[in-house]
Amino acid sequence: MDRRNFIQKTAAFTGGLLVPKLLTASFPALPAKSRIVISHNASWSRSVGTVDSDSMLKVLDKAIQTYFQVDHVRQGWSKIVRPGEVIGLKVNCLSGHGATHTLLVQAVAERLQQAGIKENDIIVWDRLNSDLEDGGFRINYGKKGLRVFGNDAIGFDPYLQTFGQASSLVTKILTRVVDGVINLPLLKDHSIAGITMSLKNLFGAINNPNKYHLNTGDPYIADVNRLPAIYHKVRFTICDAAQAQYHGGPSFMPQWRWPFGALIVGRDRVAMDYTGWKIIEQKRAKMGFKSLKEEGREPTYISTAADASHALGTNDPQRIDVIRV
């Protein structure tokens, strides 16, 4: 190999290495002010059970258009995914009843397909197959339709990922199957962590969430969100807050649920959780419950996630732009 040849090959090789990095970097960085859109549906707020596929699509479209400030929905989705990618949808089915609406998954899947993602390249996933089934999803490993399966179906990557106090194995769905993840959590009170929403939903991506419920989940929830596979692949959050729960969570407790009637979307998971926390606190105060701090379970992991070592987003209300539509 002569000198010219060597340089050519080296350049090509280096270019190859850079491609994934450039692709990742081309997604817009977090803006100086984090935008959160709360997309309401008046009938959802009035009555439980009025969520249908039409209204779900409308609320979702309104949220995406407002968040990305675009005229057409597809323009918004093109800022989240690229045609030909494999996209994971992380739902929350842990509580069985009251899981992420299948209608929301259908709506997101429909819009993803219009944005150039093949139906079979959309992976709906959670911790266990049985959780997904309890949440109303049908397991599908086939070559047609949305693929739906849990971590137990595919297993965990054998290499420990570590950040701060967290050392975990990450699901192969994240490390080997999908190019990016759209997080579809719920908005709920949590008996240990205070609330569960965007950040905590990603406990479903690791093998040992049971080890991280000490000290109200702080710093573990923030640390887990900085594990490389999670940090680099989760692109956007669409929180299903059609119905939310202000007490007794994360278990399904119908007496403490209320029809909040909205989807809450954003890229900044910390700002999302800060916003969700305030919604829960307001509802608790209105219903005569103590604040989470008074109950010894203030979700301090949110501020930890915002600190300099985690830099996952902002919990400064001055830097969060909440848009209600």
Partner: peptide, 22 residues
């Protein structure tokens, strides 16, 4: 409210429905 408290080890995990201990 369907919670349980484990008394096997000194951790005494309080566990919600469908959840697991440490």
């Amino acid at each position: 409210h369907k919670q349980v408290r484990c008394k096997l080890c000194p951790r005494h995990c309080v566990i919600d429905d469908r959840e697991r201990g440490y």
